[in-house]
């Protein structure tokens, strides 16, 4: 299909200006590269942190399923009764494994870990109860099912206290959530930095091309015509900066890939590190290009009208 001539002309002119701006950047490779690198670093920081916390969230979601239960038994329950209870609970379908920690084991562990050994010697008797450490069956490991199981166990007469160890997972997730929110603040600040970098670069460019701007104004250029190459320059800076940023993030995560696999292997887990998805990559490019365009727009609006032919 052929476009009507004015429309075709319009696009052809835009394409030409876009290419000219690109060529101008190419002809000053060092200066362009430095600007692009600064923008890239500014964009890589929030993008990388976003990806990192995304992975931590994924990890936290998996730990949700690894809930553990601790049953603190009544003091009146003796060791034989505790063993019997352990046997009984091991038969429950919801429960995968039950591990008995006797008061003696608990005391020994506590003595070792706390450093209160001397003080504990002063006690007449062992104050610690027997504990049953329970790992729910995989099918009942979700936060909700585990909580229901905890309720049932709490109702047993031998049980003094039933505690679901989801707290730390919740805290972990809360911290990750908080950090993720912090990233948006960081991203906003660094986005502002990109605006300033592009704006300042365009301002210098306008100064350097002052004579050219004056002459084109003299022979009847509209402000749109004069603005266009600078806007495209800003657009290219942002786009290439974002590409550079994505490259930095991918390289950094490639470096992390192997150690993470090794660490995960130690836990017999199958966690895999997420890299930038196609959607995130595209979002980064769009964001970078928009920031570049906006920065150029602001600079052009502020500085171009000041250039008037004499």
């Amino acid at each position: 299909m052929r476009l009507p001539r004015p429309v075709h002309n319009y696009f052809a002119r835009h394409a030409q200006v876009a290419l000219n701006s690109l060529g101008r950047l190419y002809r000053a490779p060092l200066a362009s590269l430095m600007t692009v690198a600064v923008i890239g670093i500014a964009l890589a920081l929030p993008a990388g942190l976003y990806l990192l916390t995304g992975n931590l969230q994924k990890l936290g979601a998996r730990w949700d399923g690894g809930a553990n239960l601790s049953l603190f038994l009544q003091h009146s329950v003796d060791l034989d009764q505790a063993r019997a209870l352990r046997q009984r609970l091991a038969g429950w379908p919801e429960i995968d494994t039950v591990h008995l920690i006797t008061p003696e084991q608990a005391l020994a562990e506590f003595r070792e870990a706390s450093g209160f050994g001397q003080t504990l010697d002063l006690l007449d008797e062992n104050p610690l109860p027997a504990v049953l450490a329970i790992r729910p069956d995989a099918a009942h490991a979700s936060a909700h099912a585990a909580a229901a199981l905890t309720e049932r166990l709490r109702a047993l007469p031998e049980v003094e206290l039933a505690q679901l160890d989801l707290q730390w997972v919740k805290r972990f997730n809360a911290i990750v959530d908080m950090v993720r929110r912090g990233i948006w603040v960081l991203a906003a600040l660094l986005g502002l930095a990109v605006l300033l970098i592009v704006g300042n670069t365009i301002r210098l460019e306008i100064q350097n091309r002052r004579e050219e701007i004056e002459i084109t104004k003299l022979i009847g250029a509209t402000s749109g015509f004069i603005r266009r190459p600078f806007l495209y320059t800003g657009f290219w800076y942002g786009l290439f900066g974002a590409l550079g940023g994505a490259l930095v993030v991918q390289l950094a995560f490639l470096q992390l890939l192997e150690p993470v696999q090794r660490l995960v292997g130690l836990y017999q887990s199958s966690f895999s590190l997420d890299m930038l998805s196609a959607g995130e990559f595209l979002a980064l490019l769009t964001g970078g290009a928009s920031l570049g365009l906006l920065g150029a727009w602001i600079a052009v609006g502020r500085h171009l009208s000041a250039v008037e032919p004499q």
Binding site: E211, E212, E214, I215, T216, K217, L218, I219, G220, A221, T222, S223
Partner: peptide, 29 residues
């Protein structure tokens, strides 16, 4: 801009763009 396009202006110091060829200078309007 539209008024200026109706006028051809010539200056004592020429006001040419020195980083462009003669062709590009003349083509500018």
């Amino acid at each position: 801009p539209m008024v200026r396009r109706k006028i051809g202006m010539i200056f004592q110091n020429h006001r040419l763009l020195f980083d462009r060829t003669v062709f590009d200078n003349v083509a500018l309007p």
